[in-house]
Design a protein around this nucleic acid. Structure first.
Length: 193
DNA sequence: TCGCCGATGTTCT
DNA sequence: GAACATCGGCGAT
């Protein structure tokens, strides 16, 4: 067990992704409550770890509870947390936060005053928290990162397919806090039988 | 409100 | 050389 902010980072990525909803993540004191995540795992064609270890994805093959940051479409950074045991190759993409701390910094970095546009999407939240590739491989337990346990109320979760991928599109490993205004996109309505 | 499209750079084949 | 875990602007509805 690798506990951090009350989360067992050695659990499977889909379990960690659900536990992370409601946890507060800060970088140099700026951030908010996680409201949306996606799980990725080895043996998952959509995962960066599917084809084995490389220089880029090394943090996901290392110890649990470490940041994996990659560049997306040449212009955005995306933040993940490694999980599972050393050598497994799994992680959770942090897709959206509810802004709570350092909102003035986030507004300046994002160039908007609209709270809903600060951290509602993986690229947006990375920009708001000033996350870049230099943070990849850094443990979440030490500065500049900080993780704060979620409050007592564990609200209901949305579950659905992951966003923006072309493989394993049907795997329901996207999770979101039901009722949150800060999701990157609405969850698809549940299909009627 | 929705959908298309271009920007832009790294990674891996 | 293709693919890409995205975003914002634009025009159509």
């Amino acid at each position: 067990m690798y506990p951090l902010a009350g989360i067992d980072f050695e659990a499977p990525s889909h379990a960690v992704a659900q536990q992370l909803i409601g946890v507060t993540v800060l970088v140099d004191g700026v951030g908010g409550r996680i409201v949306e995540t996606e799980a990725y795992d080895r043996d998952d064609p959509a995962s960066h770890t599917f084809n084995g270890p490389t220089a880029r994805n090394a943090p996901m093959f290392g110890p649990p509870g470490v940041a994996y940051v990659y560049r997306s479409y040449g212009m955005h950074w995306c933040l993940n947390f490694s999980c599972r045991e050393v050598g497994h190759g799994a992680g959770v993409l942090i897709r959206a936060l509810e802004p709570t701390e350092g909102i003035a910094h986030m507004r300046a970095r994002r160039g908007t005053d609209d709270l809903r546009l600060l951290c509602s999407g993986p690229g947006r939240l990375a920009q708001a928290l000033a996350i870049d590739g230099t943070l990849s491989g850094r443990p979440l337990a030490v500065a500049p990162f900080a993780l704060l346990p979620r409050g007592a109320a564990a609200g209901e979760l949305h579950v659905g397919p992951r966003i923006g991928i072309s493989k394993a599109v049907e795997v329901p490993w996207r999770f979101g806090e039901k009722g949150s205004r800060f999701l990157s996109r609405a969850f698809p309505a549940v299909r009627r039988p």
